[in-house]
Design a protein around this nucleic acid. Sequence first.
DNA 1: CGGGGTCATTTTGTATACAATAATGAGATA
DNA 2: TATCTCATTATTGTATACAAAATGACCCCG
Lengths: 243, 243
Amino acid sequence: MSHAWHEEMQAEIKAGGRVSDRDIADKVRHAVLMQRLPPGTKLPEVTLGEVFGVSRSVVRKALTRLASEHVVDQRPNQVARVRAPSIEETRETFEARRLVEGEVVALLAGRLSAETLDALKVQAREESEAYRRGDEPARIEHSLNLHHLLAEQSPNRVLGGMLTDLVLRTSIVVALYKRSGLASCYQDGQHDRLLEHLADGEAEASRRAIHDHLHGLESLLDLSPREARIDLMSILGRTPEQA
Amino acid sequence: MSHAWHEEMQAEIKAGGRVSDRDIADKVRHAVLMQRLPPGTKLPEVTLGEVFGVSRSVVRKALTRLASEHVVDQRPNQVARVRAPSIEETRETFEARRLVEGEVVALLAGRLSAETLDALKVQAREESEAYRRGDEPARIEHSLNLHHLLAEQSPNRVLGGMLTDLVLRTSIVVALYKRSGLASCYQDGQHDRLLEHLADGEAEASRRAIHDHLHGLESLLDLSPREARIDLMSILGRTPEQA
DNA sequence: CGGGGTCATTTTGTATACAATAATGAGATA
DNA sequence: TATCTCATTATTGTATACAAAATGACCCCG
């Protein structure tokens, strides 16, 4: 674990009251999303416990939760690590998300209340503004909020839950495989177009918009199998940062 | 928890060696599927621990795992219970499964090896035979095996994992909402038809076959909202069996 | 210089003790 | 008789101790 993140967490802890396993999971998940904890990072139970001021029991539950979300790799008798999905899994995650999110927005088209539509627009605008001023963390945050809102609003809650999971997994692999040159994966206007179709009640157009959006996002990644960055890393045992 | 199940488990434990949280989760999951543990059944940690001869630590992990699979309801400071999905959730689960399993079989059409195709046919035949001789538990087992095989063979492993989850959840609600008069939810020949389309490489026909199969299955359930069996049960605090 | 094995260290797995919270039931009161 | 209160009990939440396993370093030997 990185020392910067370490101290940041401890500071936050002092302020608040007790921390639950959910709190820990939230913080770790967020750190992974923000690339503060790169894939392969070890997450020893005692260390995490010290960071958050709780015992291993609570940490273990948090790690188990994160493992069920595919954020962390938890194998028997081994320290948990931030997961590093393969290139193949990345493609499959995108395919799955296209299927599920496409269906969700198709179901959602024309059914959104004015309030939620406004909330979605706010996130889209904030995202675009964050992009313009070069604030990538904020940009990611707002993009995530937008898709998370869509998942929450899904008339089909089961599909909504699956979508929440897929949005998380997609974000992780985007952070992992983003072309090194690229500063951001922002695609101008795509969210706005989706929102228009949703407001107009055009189910199939909404589905297409999401498909295009996700295909575009995937195409911004470096998924060339030759390099096999991850495999090399794990094979060579190069662990980004230890506790 | 029922006493019959209780003793059965203890007997099994004596035979085998140590039990892991995964073992416990497997056994409980299976019992739920087989309706040995009806929805709402309390699952106190100490009791389960005694049954399986382990301490609460292991039981807790097993319960957490089952909760992430939506088999069990685990709320803070309350005893875990076998989940009782609502009628609404039942419909949504079926809808989600149609989407996902439809896509999986479409991807799978024409890509199955002769061996797996044979394995699938074996399960279909065994299911039909179990139905004919009135062995409902065996019938369910083979039907589950068939769909589980499909999920495992999915070229897209992410979709495959989601399908595994949905097959489980569907089975639970089928057990819950099966029309009381019906002895079985077997639909003659539907699995065979699907297998034919898969062998012939007809993706869209396979998708339709699954859709029909699942619509048919759903129509065999008693999903009339007036009765609201579950809600009544939970409101009246009627707990099927205590520990 | 490299391979392999042994031992100390680290880390997880499990059980248990105690604290905190929720469920239960008895008894008093209207 | 119904209901409210409060003590009792049952159950989960958390921390800790010890066992088991993996890790890593070191040394020996080829």
